[in-house]
Simulated assay, not measured.
Amino acid sequence: MSKNEKTGLYPKPSSPCNCMNIRRASRAVSQFYDSMLEPGGITLNQFGMLNVIDGMQAPGISELAGEFRVDRTTMNRNLKPLLEKGLICQRQGSDARRREIVLTESGRTALLRGKELWDAAQKALEDYLGADELKQLKSTLSKLEALVP
C-alpha cells in the first residue's frame, strides 16, 4: 500500500464511474484481507461465514443466505469449501425440513486463528487510512449499503 511519491497519487487513477471505483476498491481490500488470512488457511469470505455461523448458533441455510444477502443456491455453493475442509457440518434441525449449520472443532480452531489474523488486517488498514478517514469510510459505506434495504 504505497503512494507514488512523485505525483502524490495512489497507483490507480480514479474512474469516471463511481460504481467502478467502489468495485475496484472492494476487490483490493478483499485481496488484502485474503492475503492476511492466508496463513490460517481460509479466505475472508470463509472467515466471515465461520464468524456468522458461530454467532448465530446453528443457523439454517435460509437464515445464512438472508444474513449475507444472497440466495440459497449461492449460500450452498459458498458453504461447500467449508464442508469439504471439515470446518462446518450440517445436522438435522428441530423439524425434518431444517438443516442446521454448525462449526466443527476444526472450524472453531480456524475461526480463532482467523480472528488473530483478521485483527492484524484491521489494524493495518486503520494504520493505512488513519482513524478519521476510516470513520468517514464506514459512514459512507453504510449510506451506500442503504441504497438497497
Rank of each mutant, 00 (worst) to 15 (best):
K6V: 12
T7I: 05
G8D: 09
P11C: 03
S14C: 04
S14K: 07
C19L: 14
M20R: 09
N21T: 02
N21Q: 06
R23D: 05
R24H: 09
R24F: 11
S26R: 08
S26I: 03
R27H: 12
V29M: 12
S30H: 10
S30N: 12
F32V: 03
F32Y: 15
Y33N: 04
Y33V: 13
S35E: 14
M36S: 11
L37F: 03
L37Q: 03
L37P: 05
G41K: 00
G41I: 00
L44I: 07
N45Y: 09
N45I: 08
Q46E: 15
L50E: 01
N51D: 15
N51I: 03
V52K: 13
I53A: 02
D54G: 10
G55P: 00
M56P: 05
A58S: 15
P59I: 04
G60Y: 11
I61D: 04
S62Y: 10
E63P: 06
V70S: 04
V70R: 07
D71Q: 08
D71M: 06
T73C: 03
M75S: 04
M75V: 02
R77C: 07
K80F: 12
P81Y: 01
L83R: 09
K85I: 01
K85N: 05
G86K: 06
G86F: 06
C89A: 13
R91P: 01
Q92G: 06
D95N: 13
D95Q: 09
R97K: 15
R99D: 03
R99E: 09
V102D: 11
L103P: 13
T104H: 09
G107E: 03
G107K: 04
R108A: 09
A110Q: 06
A110K: 06
L111M: 05
L112D: 14
G114Y: 00
K115E: 14
E116R: 10
L117K: 01
A120C: 05
A121E: 05
Q122N: 13
